[in-house]
Design a protein around this nucleic acid. Structure first.
Lengths: 213, 213
DNA sequence: TCACTAAATGAATAACGTTCATTTCCATTA
DNA sequence: TAATGGAAATGAACGTTATTCATTTAGTGA
């Protein structure tokens, strides 16, 4: 299904073009606007034409997902101690997908086969774990644990500020309501960032202790 | 919008009935089958009749979500030390929503107002944290961090076994591929459970250290 | 020039959530 | 008893959605 090399004219569509158009569409109008019709229109093409290059809309989401994985910064693993590198990677990972929540089920549930950027990222992270002395057989579990936290935190980063407002039922949950109203964080940090930092520090410290023990 | 008390016959629909029917439908045929038409049919009613008791399908999901929150076991907080209670609660929480992935965006993004079971759960958890000596102003962040990990782990629990199969690109990620193939866990535990246990232990230990420090 | 093929088209379909005018049926009031 | 009011059910309709299919277009190689 790859496109031939020597085909100068009439080369309208391709997976690359579709991916770029989808990214642009999502950046401008969000995922609600990422429809096959809208995508086709942005490429000046009929919706059905997309199906010559892509098997389904899921396929489009996979292409977009892999492209975004290339934006996750793994460079810290090559130049920093493990704990600090994990923190920087996790922050970058969360920030990228906070703006792409609908992709999280795709990442979390679909095989990485044929997702080169995704595999590349995992390789860089694995390298960092190996250099830190992690035993091969625990590395994937550790990465999965960190990823689970990151995905959940990406959701949390998009939660409205009043998500824990108890409303009329406040009297039935006095301790929780009090804890919610006392939740105040350092200037410049919103609630989601504080919870993310707290959990990430705990997770990294706990994993380091596991490795040492 | 509450139903009157003395209305014996003709009492066809109500939020309670809708919630129960939706839970039954999902348990039998999954979330793909939870459509307004299917839900109405299971209640022997026209689809439009549902809108007399519910504003939207989102509303139905909210009702289901709150009902499920009642199934999360928080009893350990009343009878066990903090670390062990958190572990049991987290396991129960993950297990409940592993079978209800489509609800995770709903839980993570929508206010808890008018979700009594949800608020009840948070109150029980908050109580447990208070008894363990946590300062009020950190409790919500700690719960949010744990929840983020739990939601992500619920996704992971539904991932196919071959999710990390690198396929044709294995040569470009040798270290990762090796780590994936060495990922083997004790009998009776699948991969997702091992990663969940590893991360949960690390998170709990790390949070305990934060509290102590 | 002629076939072959990749790729675009436009019409069509089924399923979805949702709206709305209308009707039904019960409980209350006159 | 008869009339009234209102909650709730109906069935038809609408606008989107992803996806399919037969058909046409146009460029390439023989």
């Amino acid at each position: 299904m790859r496109r031939r090399a020597g085909r100068p004219s009439q080369a309208l569509l391709g997976q690359g073009q579709i991916t770029r158009a989808a990214l642009k569409l999502v950046a401008r109008d969000g995922y609600k606007a990422l429809t096959m019709s809208g995508l086709a229109k942005s490429l000046n093409v009929a919706p059905s034409a997309l199906y010559n290059h892509v098997a389904s809309k899921q396929d489009v989401l996979l292409l977009v997902e892999d492209a975004l994985m290339g934006r996750v910064d793994v460079s810290a693993f090559a130049r920093m101690p493990w704990a600090e590198a994990v923190r920087l990677w996790a922050h970058s990972y969360r920030d990228v997908f906070s703006a792409h929540l609908p992709l999280i089920p795709v990442i979390a549930l679909l095989p990485v086969t044929n997702a080169p950027q995704t595999i590349k990222m995992y390789e860089a992270v694995t390298d960092g774990f190996l250099r830190a002395g992690w035993p091969q057989e625990r590395i994937v579990d550790a990465i999965v644990a960190l990823e689970s936290f990151i995905f959940g935190s990406a959701y949390d980063a998009n939660a409205p500020a009043d998500i824990f407002a108890t409303g009329e039922l406040a009297e039935e949950a006095p301790h929780f309501s009090a804890a919610v109203s006392l939740r105040r964080n350092p200037a410049g940090h919103n609630d989601a960032d504080a919870a993310f930092a707290l959990g990430l520090d705990a997770l990294v410290a706990g994993l380091a202790a596991t490795l040492a023990g």
